[in-house]
Simulated scan of single mutants.
Amino acid sequence: MIIRKVESRPFTIKLKTPFKNSNIEITKREGLIIKITEEYGNIGYGEVSPLPGLSEESLEDIVPIVKDLERKMTGSELDSDIFQSLKKYPSVEFGVSQALHSIFILRDGLNPKWNMISTISVNGIIGMVSHDDALKRARQLTDEGFQTIKIKVGRDNIEDDIKLVKSISENLNSSINYRLDVNGKWDVDKTIYAVEQFEGINIEYLEQPVSNIEELKELAKISKIPIAADESIRNMDDVKRFLTESNIQYFVIKPSLMGSITETINLLNLIQAAKRRVIISSAFESSIGRSALVFLASLVQNNSAHGLAVASYFSSDIAEDDYPIMNGKISFD
């Protein structure tokens, strides 16, 4: 395939209100939108938007990398080795891969090996906010039809987390499913204590309760509530290690921070073959980046809800959302 032209343009999207977890605060999302045109005029778009506090690379790092790619790829035969040079910059690899993947689908159609589902469940999310605001948000999410709610925890005083989760569960329908995302802020003792306090609450999993990988593996053995890995997963080797060395049942994957779309598909297949569960999770991408996440979520065969409900936090977006969430689900043809 001959690449006729590669272009990029910057974007900035402000959030209506800051989104906080126990480690970072997001007030806006910045990045680049890549546009690739191939020899027959087919066009693909991809998003490059490293997330401060989670991505290893910064926006300042990737701008010259993308500009260099524009020069190297324009007018050239597509070289698969291009991805090897991007391994240090997963957000760039994701954006280029997304754009090319879109072109391949336009040219060749959907891969018949992809067993895509037509309806995706999505979890609502509550950031690190006050008790009253969290309860208000929880009620709003259930009114909007969400059956799974992810709550950011990991406050300085664990009793505040416990009080909040109990309050939300007591005020909502008993059928609601909860996920608690600690972002690595607890230790083993705090996690065990919290698990005891949450007895009787419908908690699907604790996400990254500790930052230490060995402690995470140990908790997966002893916790009565299943453990999910998130920040500890950044590539295929991490996944293989957890599959062979731990009893972790849930893998929270942020594709835009991991790199190649093709490698992410292989990763999803690997996890599902091991009878573990995959959650595709947004890193607050624009509608362009989220479209790739919806595609990846459609390849996951379990019925778990995915973490894609971030559009409502944006004051605007760079394109119309082709995959709106209705009653906690995304449906498409």
Rank of each mutant, 00 (worst) to 15 (best):
173 N>K: 15
147 Q>D: 12
185 K>S: 15
162 I>M: 02
205 Y>I: 11
163 K>I: 09
172 L>C: 12
162 I>L: 07
182 V>L: 06
210 V>G: 08
168 I>T: 11
206 L>C: 09
213 I>H: 08
178 Y>P: 04
180 L>N: 01
197 Q>T: 00
195 V>F: 02
207 E>D: 09
211 S>P: 02
151 I>N: 12
182 V>W: 01
158 I>G: 04
204 E>T: 12
170 E>W: 01
172 L>D: 06
170 E>P: 01
185 K>N: 14
152 K>P: 11
170 E>V: 05
206 L>I: 13
175 S>G: 03
213 I>W: 02
165 V>W: 00
157 N>K: 07
218 E>L: 10
199 E>D: 14
168 I>K: 06
153 V>I: 15
171 N>K: 15
216 L>N: 01
192 I>R: 13
200 G>D: 09
211 S>R: 15
151 I>F: 09
190 K>D: 15
182 V>D: 07
213 I>G: 00
168 I>F: 05
180 L>D: 00
152 K>T: 06
203 I>Y: 06
169 S>E: 10
172 L>I: 15
145 G>R: 11
161 D>S: 11
166 K>I: 04
151 I>M: 13
168 I>G: 12
150 K>A: 05
156 D>N: 14
213 I>A: 09
154 G>I: 05
155 R>A: 11
195 V>R: 00
172 L>A: 13
179 R>E: 08
198 F>V: 01
174 S>N: 11
165 V>I: 12
159 E>I: 00
183 N>A: 14
157 N>G: 01
158 I>W: 02
175 S>Y: 08
148 T>R: 05
148 T>E: 12
152 K>N: 10
206 L>R: 05
180 L>H: 00
207 E>V: 08
158 I>E: 10
194 A>P: 02
154 G>C: 13
197 Q>R: 13
207 E>Y: 02
189 D>W: 05
152 K>L: 13
211 S>F: 12
150 K>M: 12
170 E>C: 08
181 D>E: 13
177 N>H: 14
196 E>T: 05
174 S>W: 00
183 N>P: 11
191 T>N: 13
191 T>P: 03
203 I>A: 06
153 V>W: 00
164 L>D: 04
186 W>M: 03
188 V>N: 01
185 K>L: 12
159 E>V: 04
163 K>N: 09
161 D>K: 03
177 N>L: 09
179 R>G: 08
168 I>C: 08
181 D>M: 09
208 Q>N: 11
145 G>D: 13
202 N>H: 13
219 L>F: 07
177 N>T: 12
198 F>W: 09
164 L>W: 02
160 D>M: 04
215 E>K: 14
184 G>S: 14
187 D>C: 11
147 Q>A: 06
185 K>V: 04
179 R>V: 15
168 I>R: 08
147 Q>S: 11
208 Q>M: 11
184 G>N: 10
193 Y>H: 12
212 N>V: 14
192 I>H: 03
156 D>P: 00
197 Q>Y: 00
210 V>A: 14
181 D>W: 01
181 D>R: 06
219 L>Q: 09
